[in-house]
Amino acid sequence: MNIDSIKNGVVIDHIKAGEGMKIYHFLNLDKQDCTVAIIKNATSKQMGRKDIIKVDSFIDLNALGYIDPNITINVIKDGVRVEKYHPELPAKIINVVRCKNPRCITTTEQELPHVFKLTDAENQVYRCIYCETKADK
């Protein structure tokens, strides 16, 4: 199967097989008007099977490390890969996940941003800054 290579944008590689659509929605790619290709169950030497997303635009990938820090991001400029990296675990994520604790202040004060901070990098644990409830991935 052939998919056009992109000229300027990002290739999000080494996504766990089956997680591609989750990342598609997480990055709000359904609301972007750029070209997006989702490749599911591609063969991978490392992973057996993997998903890949190609985006023909430069988008904010800041919080992607929260979803999976093992993903590889390739930055393409003028058809050439100029950068390849794994996303870092963000120190803080804002309005990415909602606090599920019914006793949290965010349940009654709707305008508050849902902020989670990284409290345990080794185990990738994020906690609500208000009530310290662990984020559900």
């Binding site: 006793r103 202040i105 349940t107 004060e109 009530c131």
Partner: peptide, 10 residues
């Protein structure tokens, strides 16, 4: 004092 967790932080 507030019944909701995190209210004093806010």
């Amino acid at each position: 004092r507030h019944p909701k967790e995190g209210a004093p932080l806010v």
